[in-house]
Amino acid sequence: MIFNNQKFKKMISKRFVLTFPPEATGEPITYNLIKKYDIMVNIVRADVSPGKIGHLVMEMTAPAKTLKEGMVYIRQQNVECEPIEKKIHYREDLCIHCGACSAVCFAGALTMGRMTAELTFDPEKCVVCELCLKSCPLNLFSIDID
């Protein structure tokens, strides 16, 4: 049996954005991903509150086949599940630090330093919602496809 253990299969880590409908599903999705599918789950960012569309950014680690099964399971719960295959590219050298992009960054990847008044971009927190692309008055954000 030990040879069937996932530890010996090629593990893949991938980030996903889960979008929850305003009405709660009642299903313990992350619990089931871990318990039933043996997927390692790392929650990067959560913005879920009752009655509103919620977002969950998480990294899932498992063999490719298991990851696919996990995605099918999530979607069966009426939750959108999109792998993050894009990255935001930011032209920091041309930035004037106005802060207009930070207004729309609900993921908290674009923030203004209170003392420095400078913009900071943390790609680790970015959920690639792409709102910054339209909000930057100098058009300094673009999409890189992995």
Partner: peptide, 13 residues
């Protein structure tokens, strides 16, 4: 409510 500036304090400084 989260706030965001549109005018650059960094350049103003």
């Amino acid at each position: 409510i989260r706030t965001a500036p549109l005018s650059s304090v960094k350049v103003a400084r």
